[in-house]
Amino acid sequence: MTALQGQTPPDLSGRNLSFRRAFANRAATSLIALCVLVAALPLALVAWEVVSKGASAWSLAWFIDEIPRNYRTEGPGMGPAILGTLTITGMAALMSIPIGVLGAVYLNEYGKNKPLARFIRTMADVMTGVPSIMMGLFIYVGYVIVIGDKTGFGGALALACLMLPIVIRSTEEMLRLVPDELRQASSGLGARKWRTVLGVVLPAASSGITSGSLLAVARAAGETAPIIVTVGLTYIYKPDLFDGQNTTLAAQIFRNASQPFAASQERAWGAALTLIAIVFVFTILSRIIAARFAIDKR
């Protein structure tokens, strides 16, 4: 079946086509190609604008200095937000990745096709579609109100909720790629299931899991809505995530972009470039690790 390859049979070249059919084919193909252009255009626009407007803001001081208190104050300073993005996203990763990986182990190694596992799988898919602001509202009600203050940790919790289904689903895909022979060999040697999972299955899938988790981190780092709901919109970073309002790059972009002042908008562009750079690094890392995994698989 799969032996049939090759796109067009050689004999039926376009010369014998009626004009109408040839024209329809050409027109449709060009329209389809145009669609790619339509997608590439906004990407190019975003990349051009962010790089050209954001690059001028970058300097050593940009990465270290505090964020000016007044929107109108010109000059650099996004250091607190960079730290905030890294720590809050890092904390979220610390919570969601272990739970997500274990959840995926349940789905692929224990639950398999049981009704419960199938239900969890569907709901994890549904959860990836839950609007991110909803995770913020949930943590606001379930954590911020209880604690009585918006904190960086609240933001981390919200981001963790956001990352959880992504980590679960991508990890499960990777676990599915681990050949069954490995599991059988491990059981054959007398290992119990938990040893098989921890000692054989997870290490075999480790690079794929890392790659999927990095993608989840990249997505969480760019989230704004849950941050402004649970962390607040301020300009101060606090290393202690449990101590009051905090800030991230995404929140700074939103905060500065909605102001009409040139100085704050320039900071918004600089922050956007910084954020995209961070997201990009995570994405590239994930790609590199995933490519390695693909080679291992052979």
């Binding site: 959840g103 349940y106 789905l107 224990y110 639950g111 969890i120 959860m127 379930g142 999972v197 921890l198």
Partner: peptide, 24 residues
């Protein structure tokens, strides 16, 4: 214990979704 642990982790998805609906 491990079986219980991973099952619990799998259930977090349902728990979080349920909690979102109820608490909000």
């Amino acid at each position: 214990g491990f079986t219980g642990l991973v099952a619990l982790a799998g259930l977090t998805v349902l728990v979080v979704l349920g909690l979102i609906l109820v608490t909000t």
